[in-house]
């Protein structure tokens, strides 16, 4: 039989968990509110969406990379990007481009027959 005290204790525990979750969430929001633009990129065999983004030289951006299917790579040597996007997951990477130009980013984690054509363009102005 569950006593009133036990119910109170259980409620208090749930409340604590909810508060912790709220604090974590708020922390994440604060991180997003620090004026770093976020660019969402989705990887799905055999394309990135969008397939072209434009960044500003010297401006820091956060790339949020999401795989909709298998593990993909995200490789661009001039921007020192060499990321692994695990299957079905999202990762974030911060980059500050220092060189203007048009660069081709590739998936460098072999993902199937048309892997060699899985590219996207990053323009740095």
């Amino acid at each position: 039989m569950i006593t009133t005290n036990a119910r109170k204790a259980a409620f208090a525990s749930l409340l604590s968990l909810a508060l912790i979750a709220l604090m974590v969430s708020s922390g994440a929001n604060r991180a997003h509110a620090d004026d770093i633009p976020v660019v969402e990129i989705t990887a799905k065999r055999f394309a990135f969406t969008p397939d072209k983004i434009t960044l500003k030289k010297g401006q820091t951006v956060k790339l949020r990379l999401h795989s909709e299917d298998v593990t993909h790579g995200f490789f661009l040597r001039p921007l020192k990007l060499d990321e692994e996007i695990p299957a079905g997951q999202t990762i974030e990477v911060t980059v500050t481009p220092q060189t203007a130009g048009t660069f081709m980013t590739i998936c460098d984690h072999f993902c199937g027959a048309n892997h060699g054509n899985m590219t996207m363009t990053i323009v740095v102005e």
Partner: peptide
């Protein structure tokens, strides 16, 4: 060696 990294012609 880095022959053409944007064509995946390299070994990291």
């Amino acid at each position: 060696f880095d022959l053409r990294p944007d064509w995946e012609w390299f070994t990291s």
